[in-house]
């Protein structure tokens, strides 16, 4: 069989790896927002204890290579807790927490870049601190954070390939399975690379559409100015 027909034969198998890869990306970005945002708020508005806890968490998950984190959780932490979790679930947890650590710092920077007048004005019309954060600070912070947050997408996407090391059935794992079964190398890797590039491109395209959609005239330049 020639390389092309082998590629065609295995392509569906390769593509189903995309489902896992995308699930890992979405988990990392989703959990990143879900946990990263409260962590950022804790760092900016929280007590000393909250700030310390977040600081340690961020230091830990940003300080270790992904591969080390994956091994640590898959072979170390979860087994020692008598938890026999599938590799895919472990990967989601690790990438999610790691995403939260990185993204919390993007959100924190955005929140801190908002001029203090916004909070003062919100309190002056009778908003509680919580209402002010929710209705005034966060909507602005999210817009400021979006470009930096979008840049996490290619990082997270490329990080998913590391999950190969614990056997998650994502794109790279399937690619190497096909290679070892068929002994066809170059075309299979090129196909995989093509898929990664396509995912990367279309994801970034979507995010810049979102950025365009929520753009507010003059917002961004102005907050830098008032911050100066």
């Amino acid at each position: 069989m020639d390389a092309v027909s082998i590629l065609i034969e295995w392509f569906p198998y390769l593509l189903s790896g995309v489902v896992f890869t995308l699930a890992l990306v979405l988990a990392s970005l989703g959990l990143g927002v879900l946990f990263g945002l409260p962590m950022a708020l804790g760092q900016v508005y929280g007590t000393r204890l909250a700030r310390t806890c977040v600081g340690v968490f961020v230091w830990f998950f940003r300080g270790l290579p992904v591969l080390v984190l994956l091994f640590l959780f898959y072979y170390g932490i979860f087994p020692s807790l008598n938890l026999d979790l599938p590799a895919f679930v472990v990967a989601i947890v690790v990438l999610g927490l790691r995403g939260a650590a990185y993204q919390s710092q993007i959100f924190r920077g955005a929140i801190q870049s908002i001029g203090e007048g916004q909070m003062i004005a919100a309190r002056s019309v009778g908003m509680s601190r919580f209402q002010a954060i929710r209705s005034i600070i966060l909507p602005q912070a999210m817009r400021i954070a979006l470009p930096g947050w979008s840049n996490e997408y290619p990082n997270v996407l490329t990080d998913t390939a590391v999950c190969y090391a614990i056997g998650v059935m994502e794109l790279l794992t399937r690619t190497s399975q096909i290679v070892s079964q068929t002994y066809v190398t170059m075309p299979i890797y090129i196909a995989a690379a093509g898929i990664y590039i396509l995912l990367n491109y279309s994801g970034m395209k979507c995010l810049s559409l979102v950025e365009e959609k929520i753009k507010i005239p003059g917002f961004g330049h102005q907050s830098e100015e008032s911050h100066a």
Binding site: G117, Q118, I120, A121, S124, I136, P139, Q140, I216, S226
Partner: peptide, 13 residues
Amino acid sequence: MGMVFQNFYLFDH
């Protein structure tokens, strides 16, 4: 007690 500030402090978004 409505307050008006020197730098307006309108909600920018």
